[in-house]
Design a protein around this nucleic acid. Structure first.
Lengths: 352, 352
DNA sequence: CTGTTAGCGCCTTCAT
DNA sequence: ATGAAGGCGCTAACAG
């Protein structure tokens, strides 16, 4: 038993074959379940395999088959529960299809993204899912890696001829603004991501488009940029508060972490939410449910994005060269961080 | 350029050698930086490599060297921010050492743990970090896998002769109870994990020990079991509330997710926190900072656990067969969910 | 039904 | 300083 430790090395299929008194091809046939082998021999090989503690060497298998059973995924920030959830969705599908996931976080560094990408290629992953942080101009060359991939996130818009999965940002933004409108809010102030990020541009332009479509002039909308983090949200909110004139302030944050930061900053500034400040977020992370007040937000289909990306990638790996670019719908999660003026009738409905 | 796509297959080191007009051994020497090669040849090989878009095949390298550069990690629940943070710590060290992490979640299923473990072994990871969910009795046989590993979490206590990293539960528990004591609280009620879990037993016995050491009889302590999740905490809290007699209720939850659930349940039951109910958690997840009121908790060194486990694993992989079992200290994070009786002097200090 | 053989891509003696 | 050759563990023809 467990001759692995006895020998000081793992048993190979040859060890199994010898122990079972057959050739290594026969043993291999039993292992892979391919080809015809007599029941008696099958049993003998199985027994030998168990006795030796034989574990098939996937490296060798990959080497011959050209398939590693490894899939890579790179997201900008695995600390952000949103991305964690995307990865989880991917993970679920990976396990289902018997492959293992190599998970990386680029932490918003193009350099790290590049190096992780190289690691993936050298590991000969069968494919990868990527949310590239590359903005226009410095689009990376992962298209030449000779490895199937599916893009996720807003930056996938930069690669219109590649398969990608994302959330429907314009629809999500419209859902948020519809809600604010229903609740009788003015033009919201924006807390957005870093200036050069494509995601920021898409977010802002979706908002502008929404108002323009409704004959409302969006030019007065204030926006503060920040990192996509709690602290980024705090800092942006601090600036917003400093410049704010008037009574109630309505804030639309480009992600939930920032929204959480904004709420914390407001509280620290002595502002009550939602009485003095209304905040609506974008992502739908679990923390939003427990903050005070619970965060009203637009939930992206995070897990679905990960799942669908893996499904798509699976087809690509199978050789199906179809290009699909689904944009999954977001949904409003109404909690307590947006004041409802329409109920109190304290204010006319500016946007309705 | 990019002959990978021209050929329909990735260039191998032979392609590079041919393009550079040298033998594959010479090319290999250049790639690995080992051995003497004339500068002129080095340059030629480098150029050819770049031109062809050559990417070293780690499978082949692993096969010869016996090192895959892959490390596995299995945690019980990657959705729990605590474990996510542990993984993140591990990830950081992995990147530093140039290896890639295969991350799995057993989702509290022994069956899934086993199958993930097998996947890791077959992938020939150089080693793995594991929080086994195995309780006493059904200890798994990963000790015979012939693969270096470091255990993390409470269940590592079941393998006293193996290297492991954990948090110092008795110290953490004492820190929590000291704090409650300072704030003038009675014996707390407990929200604990599932009954059969070793972690639950350790938690409860650390609490009993604390009181016994101080000549206080802990037998009256009520405890409700639940899943290690928000909903588990809610359900346990609901039962606690139902049975509660008296005024203020003090709750010590075995993890933050359950604490969050407990607070939510209390709120739904019309109980104010901390006025009517004090809650202290255990873990130190980020969400605790934003809930209402912010959760007072005992922060485990989550990231440090991941980092140290990887450091230790690295030594094991290098052949250093030392056994180390550090238990990292926890620290009190005082926020707003525990009422301070000592300030209001509404109650005598029972435990001080 | 089973055995033999030839590599997958790389590194590393050994020889030149 | 360079080339030739063997083999890591496995599978897929090809023979019998």
């Amino acid at each position: 038993m467990r001759r692995a430790s006895q020998f000081g090395r793992r048993p190979t299929i040859i060890d199994v074959a010898i122990a079972a008194g057959v050739s290594k091809s026969t043993a291999a046939r039993v292992m892979s379940g391919q080809g015809n082998v007599s029941p008696k021999v099958v049993a003998a090989v199985r027994t030998a395999s168990r006795d030796l503690g034989y574990q098939r060497n996937n490296m060798a298998v990959s080497m011959r088959s050209g398939r590693s059973g490894l899939i890579g995924i790179i997201v900008p920030d695995i600390s952000n529960p949103f991305w964690a959830e995307v990865v989880r969705g991917a993970q679920e599908r990976a396990v289902l299809s018997g492959s293992s996931l190599l998970i990386f976080s680029s932490d918003w560094s193009a350099e790290r993204e590049r190096s992780h990408l190289q690691a993936l290629v050298q590991t000969r992953v069968d494919g990868f899912v990527l949310n590239t942080i590359a903005d226009e101009g410095d689009t990376q060359d992962f298209t030449n890696l000779g490895c199937p991939f599916v893009l996720i996130g807003t930056t996938s818009d930069l690669y219109p001829d590649r398969s990608s999965v994302g959330s429907d940002i314009p629809q999500g933004v419209a859902t948020a603004l519809d809600h604010l409108s229903r609740c009788g809010h003015d033009l919201p102030k924006l807390i957005t991501g870093p200036p050069r990020r494509l995601a920021r541009a898409k977010f802002v332009s979706a908002i502008n488009r929404y108002f323009i479509d409704r004959d409302i002039d969006p030019t007065g909308i204030e926006a503060e940029n920040g990192e996509y983090s709690v602290n980024g949200g705090r800092a942006a909110m601090a600036r917003l508060i400093r410049h704010h004139k008037g009574s109630h302030m309505t804030v639309f944050a480009a992600n939930d972490l920032m929204a959480l930061g904004a709420m914390a900053e407001a509280r620290d500034a002595g502002l009550a939410c939602p009485a003095d400040v209304s905040v609506i977020g974008f992502d739908g992370i679990p923390s939003g449910e427990f903050c005070s007040p619970p965060l009203t937000t637009i939930a992206k289909p995070s897990r679905g994005i990960g799942e669908d990306a893996m499904r798509l990638l699976g087809r690509l790996i199978e050789g199906d060269s179809v290009v699909m670019r689904p944009r999954l719908p977001c949904r409003l999660v109404e909690r307590g961080s947006v004041l409802d003026f329409s109920a109190t009738r304290e204010r006319t409905l500016h946007l309705a």
